[in-house]
């Protein structure tokens, strides 16, 4: 059942590069990463590609497949147009290191700026009493595998290098939303996310949500909610005060 598959893989580095063509035997049930590995093992030992789990759990193998940002290990060959070559290019928003590997350090720098989880004065020490309905919203965002696909498609930085300095990107907006919705977190990061992390730049195009392999509703459940909270907090200090004080678990039984 093996058939010949043509791969067009971008190869090169910061100084430039070009597509190289590899024809590899492919089999039923395989994913794009299998074909890339095959090319690497038999024709291009030095082909640079990131991957770890080959199970969609680590978020290492992000690339643009036929122009669409996806995980190579979760893209079945059978889901792509049959009989046509598969084109694979590195993530466009981040600087190239080599072949399919890009410099994603931007994201790790942004991660350092997140003010850490800080327990409330009411429950300073674990075990915390928290109810499933109250942790559920944040749990959705903690499914994030940090594949950076949402960061890669967000037009605010995809086509505007100069914005990177002022913009955390969707992955971190869900992180701020997660902390904001944590039932036992005491810090208020709303102004920080608006003013320093650039939440205001996002104009809710939803491209990030479309590419998320974890199906996190980045825009609807995190960004819009966060924007509303920022507005509330800015214009209604009373609301802000009471929100912080309201016991969370009372309504949850």
């Amino acid at each position: 059942m093996s058939y010949d598959l043509t791969l067009n893989i971008w190869r090169g580095d910061a100084n430039g590069g070009d597509f190289a063509e590899y024809v590899v035997p492919a089999e039923e049930g395989q994913v794009v990463l299998d074909a890339v590995h095959r090319a690497q093992a038999t024709m291009a030992n030095d082909l640079a590609v990131r991957w770890n789990c080959k199970a969609g759990k680590c978020g290492s193998c992000s690339a643009e497949i036929n122009g669409r940002p996806r995980l190579m290990c979760m893209t079945r060959l059978s889901s792509l147009p049959q009989g046509e070559p598969v084109t694979i290019t590195p993530l466009r928003t981040f600087p190239i290191i080599r072949d399919l590997v890009t410099d994603v350090s931007f994201n790790y720098e942004r991660a350092k700026q997140v003010p850490a989880f800080t327990p409330t004065a009411e429950q300073p020490q674990a075990p915390f009493t928290m109810h499933q309905v109250d942790v559920q919203r944040s749990q959705e965002f903690r499914k994030c595998i940090e594949c950076w696909l949402c960061q890669n498609v967000c037009h605010v930085i995809r086509d505007h290098e100069e914005n990177k300095e002022h913009y955390a990107g969707p992955r971190f907006f869900i992180r701020y939303a997660e902390l904001d919705m944590h039932p036992n977190d005491a810090l208020d990061r709303k102004e920080f996310v608006q003013d320093v992390q650039g939440l205001g730049y996002c104009n809710i195009t939803k491209c990030c949500t479309e590419v998320c392999p974890e199906s996190i509703k980045i825009t609807d459940n995190a960004i819009i909610a966060l924007k509303e909270r920022v507005v509330d907090a800015k214009y209604d200090p009373v609301v802000r005060f009471f929100r912080r004080r309201r016991p969370r678990s009372a309504s949850s039984e």
Partner: peptide, 19 residues
């Protein structure tokens, strides 16, 4: 395990709100 909760982990909960 409790230390992880202290650092922000969100485990699934029992009906009584425990881990």
């Amino acid at each position: 395990v409790l230390e992880l909760e202290q650092w922000g982990a969100l485990f699934d909960r029992t009906p009584a709100g425990k881990i």
